[in-house]
Computed example of a mutant assay.
Amino acid sequence: MSEPSEQEIRERAHQLWERAGKPEGREDEFWHAAEQELRNEDRSDTMRTPDTL
Rank of each mutant, 00 (worst) to 15 (best):
P4S: 09
D51A: 12
A33R: 14
E24T: 11
R39V: 04
R19C: 05
L53D: 14
H32T: 05
H32N: 11
E8D: 13
D42G: 13
E37W: 02
E27M: 04
W17M: 04
W31S: 01
A20K: 07
L53N: 09
E35K: 11
E8I: 04
A20E: 11
R10D: 04
Q7D: 12
M1C: 07
N40E: 15
R19I: 00
Q7K: 12
M47F: 09
M1D: 12
P23E: 09
R12T: 05
P23Q: 08
E29A: 06
T52C: 09
P23S: 08
L16M: 05
P4T: 05
E6Q: 10
D28W: 02
Q15M: 08
R39H: 07
T49F: 09
Q7E: 15
K22D: 02
Q7T: 12
A34M: 02
I9M: 05
E11K: 10
T52F: 14
A33E: 14
Q7F: 08
E41Y: 06
R19N: 09
G21E: 08
S2H: 10
F30Q: 03
E18P: 02
A33T: 08
R39F: 01
S5I: 03
E8C: 06
L38I: 05
A13F: 03
E3H: 10
R39K: 15
E41Q: 15
E18T: 11
R19H: 03
R12W: 00
P4C: 07
W17Q: 01
R26V: 05
N40A: 13
P50R: 15
D51H: 09
E18K: 13
E29Y: 12
E27P: 02
H14I: 02
N40P: 00
P23T: 06
R12C: 00
W17I: 00
W31C: 01
R12H: 03
A34L: 01
E6F: 03
G21H: 10
D51L: 14
A33V: 01
E24G: 10
R43I: 08
R43L: 13
H32D: 10
D45N: 14
P50Y: 07
E18S: 05
Q36P: 03
D51F: 09
R43W: 10
E27S: 06
R10F: 06
K22F: 08
S44R: 15
L16H: 03
R10L: 05
F30L: 06
Q36D: 09
R48E: 15
S5M: 01
M1K: 09
R19T: 06
P4F: 05
D28V: 08
R48G: 10
E24S: 14
E37M: 07
W31E: 03
S5D: 07
A20H: 09
A20I: 07
D51Q: 12
S2T: 09
A13P: 00
Q15R: 15
E29D: 11
R26P: 00
E29P: 00
A33M: 13
A34D: 00
A34R: 00
P50D: 13
M1Q: 09
E6N: 10
E41C: 08
E8W: 00
R12S: 01
E24F: 09
I9C: 03
R26I: 00
E6M: 06
Q7S: 12
W17E: 02
Q36R: 15
K22R: 14
E37Y: 05
S5V: 03
N40L: 13
E24M: 08
D28K: 08
D51T: 10
Q36V: 04
D51R: 11
A33K: 13
M47C: 05
R19G: 01
T46F: 11
E37T: 02
